[in-house]
Amino acid sequence: MSAFLVIIGIPTLAMESYSLGPIEITPWLYEFNLPPNLISGDINPIRSIFRIPNTLGLIASIGFFSSLGLTITAATKIRISFTILNFLGAYLNGSRSAFIFTLIGLVIFFVAIYLKCPISTFAVQSIFCSIFLPLIVFSIRPSLIPQFIDLTGRRTLWEASINAIKTNPLLGFGAGDQSAYIDTYIENEMHSEKGPHNSYLRMFLTTGILGGVSYVLFVLYVIINSSKAMRSIEEKTIVVIIIIFSLHQMFSSWAIFGQVGIRFFGLASSIFFGYGIRIYIDD
């Protein structure tokens, strides 16, 4: 499915828009240059049927690892094609986090497959923790992030979230409209009504220090224990996808818990975390 979503978006690299039945397929509104200049000039990021390209980026990234795992198990032309298409989708959508985390996941994936236990387990856990824990620190202390790094407004949202959390640190504000909790601390109206754009801050904001710390520890617990127990390529693929979900939550508002209603990524990540728990329970 993810490969077909990428195919739907690719024509917008060459045209401003086209209709797919009742749906109008358009690119994103800004232009970016593709490193390392594989295509001359700037292009508009593809977003397929979605409102923002980041959604396609995460879906393509998850699809890439799913099809890559199947390709390594038993390569076929269709699996190889899907793997390439999904990788292109993670690249051409313009989401820096989606593509960077895809590359990180790729390193972890091959480390898990080609190194023997317990070296592979230690390597996977070390790579993940060396990225995950500093990102948690930067989320809590965004002032530590160098100013030349463009977070597309997230720095303001994270600082406002931290200020809001300080007013009700233990139990948080409860489920509800997170943007309403932090808007008081946002001076620029351009960033208002957007929420934290960080799932871990969202958990601290809605459930306080008790819930936020518990959520971070839950993510670490599942990844560390499932990486200890992973054996088959299928299990290693699941662990890598869990890691991708965990890293993406640094820059997205969805979470496994703590949201009103059902959201696609929250549901999808819950399923993969469930499989991760099953991996080490069955070990």
Rank of each mutant, 00 (worst) to 15 (best):
M1Y: 13
M1C: 11
S2D: 10
L5I: 07
V6Y: 02
I10D: 03
P11T: 11
Y18A: 07
G21Y: 09
T26S: 13
W28F: 14
L29H: 12
N33C: 03
I39M: 13
I43E: 11
P45Y: 10
I52Y: 14
P53E: 04
N54L: 03
T55W: 05
L58P: 01
L58W: 01
A60V: 03
A60P: 04
G63V: 07
G63W: 10
S67T: 12
L70S: 12
L70K: 14
A75G: 07
T76D: 03
T76K: 10
I80Y: 08
S81T: 15
T83F: 06
I84K: 04
L85T: 03
F87N: 00
F87Q: 01
L88P: 00
Y91L: 11
F99S: 00
F99L: 04
F99G: 00
F101R: 05
G105V: 02
G105T: 02
F110A: 11
F110V: 09
V111T: 14
V111S: 12
A112I: 06
I113L: 15
K116M: 06
K116D: 11
C117W: 12
I119H: 13
A123E: 04
A123H: 04
A123C: 11
V124R: 00
V124W: 01
F128P: 02
F128M: 06
C129V: 14
C129W: 08
C129E: 10
S130L: 14
F132R: 01
L133Y: 08
L135T: 00
F138E: 02
I140G: 02
P142T: 00
L144Q: 04
L144S: 09
I145D: 00
F148R: 14
I149A: 05
L151S: 06
T152F: 10
G153C: 10
R154D: 01
A160I: 02
S161E: 01
I162Y: 02
N163F: 07
I165R: 02
N168W: 02
N168G: 01
P169E: 01
L171S: 11
L171D: 08
G176S: 06
D177K: 13
Q178V: 10
Y181V: 09
I182A: 00
D183L: 06
D183W: 09
I186G: 04
E187N: 13
M190S: 13
S192W: 15
E193S: 14
K194A: 08
G195F: 08
N198H: 02
S199L: 05
Y200V: 05
F204E: 08
L205V: 12
T206K: 10
G208L: 14
I209V: 15
L210D: 04
G212L: 05
G212I: 02
L220R: 05
L220I: 11
Y221A: 10
V222M: 08
I223D: 03
I223G: 00
I224F: 15
K228L: 12
A229T: 08
M230L: 09
R231E: 15
S232L: 08
I233L: 13
T237D: 04
T237A: 07
T237C: 05
V239A: 05
F245P: 01
S246V: 06
L247C: 01
M250R: 07
M250P: 07
F251I: 06
F251M: 07
S253L: 09
W254G: 02
A255T: 15
I256Q: 03
F257I: 15
G261Y: 13
I262D: 03
R263D: 14
G266H: 11
S269V: 05
S270I: 00
F272G: 04
Y275Q: 12
G276W: 00
G276N: 04
Y280H: 12
D283A: 13
